[in-house]
Design a protein around this nucleic acid. Sequence first.
DNA 1: TGTCCAATGCGTTACTATGACACAATATAA
DNA 2: TTATATTGTGTCATAGTAACGCATTGGACA
Lengths: 280, 280
Amino acid sequence: MTQYKKFGGVQQIFLSLKTMARKNTIPPNLKQILEKGDQLYQPGISVDCVIFGFHENMLKILLLQVKYVNKFALPGGFILRDEPIEQAAYRVLKERTGVNNIFLQQFNVFGNPDRSDATVHQAGYMEHGVKIPKDNWLLQRFITVGYYALIDFTEVKFGDVIFEEGCEWIDINKLGNLMMDHEAIILNALETLRNQLAYLPIGRNLLPKKFTMPELQKLYETILAQKLDRRNFQRKMLGFGILNRLNETKKGGAHKAPFLYTFHDKKYQKALKEGLYGSW
Amino acid sequence: MTQYKKFGGVQQIFLSLKTMARKNTIPPNLKQILEKGDQLYQPGISVDCVIFGFHENMLKILLLQVKYVNKFALPGGFILRDEPIEQAAYRVLKERTGVNNIFLQQFNVFGNPDRSDATVHQAGYMEHGVKIPKDNWLLQRFITVGYYALIDFTEVKFGDVIFEEGCEWIDINKLGNLMMDHEAIILNALETLRNQLAYLPIGRNLLPKKFTMPELQKLYETILAQKLDRRNFQRKMLGFGILNRLNETKKGGAHKAPFLYTFHDKKYQKALKEGLYGSW
DNA sequence: TGTCCAATGCGTTACTATGACACAATATAA
DNA sequence: TTATATTGTGTCATAGTAACGCATTGGACA
C-alpha cells in the first residue's frame, strides 16, 4: 500500500487551531493549507467519515468538537492530488483512531451547492486574526464523499497523540449541534448501516474478538432500534454458520454465564462477499 | 425546479467533434470549454449516467459512440458551479433521452487517480489541430459520480435532435470497447441494480405504463440473468400489492392473451420509500 | 452454605413464505 | 376445426419465521 505524506485535512485545521490557540500564533500548517492547499489537494472535494463504535449498549460515533463555533464535526479531510479517495478515507481513520484495517464503506456523495459553509473556515482563521482571501480555494464549493466505518471500540486508544484534542464518542441518540450538513450525513450513514445489517455480517467489526450472543444481539437491537427475540436471534445467527462457539463462558455477570463466540474468519470473508442471503 | 444553462459536458464535446469534423473547424463550444470551463464548472468532478432500458427481452444501456477513438462512452457531463450534482445528472439525461422525471439513483463514486485519461481529450482536440495546454483543467484528474437511470425504452424518441449523433442502445451482454473505466462503472451499476431489484419495485421505470406479467418476468430474468418460475413469480409480484390488473388482455401474441397490468401509483410510491420487505 | 433469581441454552408449535409441479383455459396458426 | 404453445389458477411438501415453554446455571443474598 502506498504511503501518502501526511499533510492533514480540514479537521487537522481544527486540531491545529486548538493547539495554536494556546500559543496564540498562526500555525505554519494553516498558512500552508491556505496558500498551497490547492496544489497539494484535489480541489473542491473532501471525504467525511462516520465512524461507528459500540460501547455499553450504545451505538456511538466519533466526532470532533470544534470549539470556536461550538459545534461537532465529522472527521474528514482532503484528497491528495494522486491519492485514491478510499485511501484518503483510510488516512483519516488512521489519524483519528490509530487503527488500521478498518471496515470502510462508501455510501453517498453530498454535493449540494449550499452545503459548503465558508463561514466555518473563515471563523477558524479569524481566531488567529487571519482573513482568508475571497478567492481562496478553501472558500469555494466543496463536494464530500461519505464513508462509514465500523470499529471495535476497545481497540481505539484514547491515549494516542491524535486523540489529545477534540475527539469524542457521541451516542447516536444524543447528537448535539453539528456543522453544516453533517447531521444529514450521519443519518444517511445510519440508514445505510441498517440496510446492510440485513445481509452483511457486521458484528465482526464492531465487537471485540470474543463476544457473547447477548452482546451481539444488543448490537443488532441498538442499530435497528428494535427489540429482538433472544431465542430466534440466536438460531438465525448460528444458522449463518459464521460463528465459532468457544469452550469458554463469560463469567462475572450476575447470572448464568453465556458462551463466548468468535467469527469464523474464512466463512466470514465469504459472507462479506456474497451476502448472507443471496436468494434470487 | 431550477433551469440551468445548457453548456454541455464531456459528451457534448464528443458530439460537437463529430459535427465539426464535417466542417473541419474548431467549434467555439470546444474553445469555450477549454478556456472558460474551469470557471463555469466545478473542477475535477463529473457525473456519468448508466441509462438502462428494456427492449425485446434485452437489457440495454444508452452509450455514446466516440468515433475518433473508436470506443463507447457513458453519457456524462460536468457540474455547473452552483448546480446540485443530481441536477447535473438530470440535465444529462434530459439532453440524451428527451425524457424528464427519470428514475435516478446515485450508486458510487469513481476516483482513482489513474482513471483519468488525458489522452482522450487530447486526441479529440488534436482532430482539430488543437493541442490542449498541459496545465488546462481538462487534463487534470477527474472524479466522477455514477448515477444509474431506469427509463421506459418506448418513451425515448430517436428522432430528437439530441440523438442525431452517436447515441445507441447497446445490449448489456454485448458491450464493446469502452473508454477509460466506463466498463467497470457499468458493471458496478448492474450489480447495484440487481441488489435493489430484490426490494425496490423497479419494473415501473423500465416498462411501458401497461404491461403483461410475462413481460415483467422477462425483465426480472434478464436483469438477474436467471430463469424464474412463472407461477411463483406471479404469486410473489401480486403479493406485493402494487399491481393493478386491467380488464384488458394483450392480444396479438400467438397464444392465450395475457392480462395487462399497471402499477398502483400510491402503493408503488410507498413501496419505493419503504422497500418491499422491510423485515428487520 | 443454601436458597433465590434473572439470564442463558435448548426445544416446541403454529404460521407464512417459497420451490416444484399439475391441470384447465384460450388466442392464434395450420 | 384442430393443434399448440402460452397463460391463469391451484396444490403440496418444505424451509424459514414468530411466539413461547422449560430446564440450567452463576452470582447475590441471607
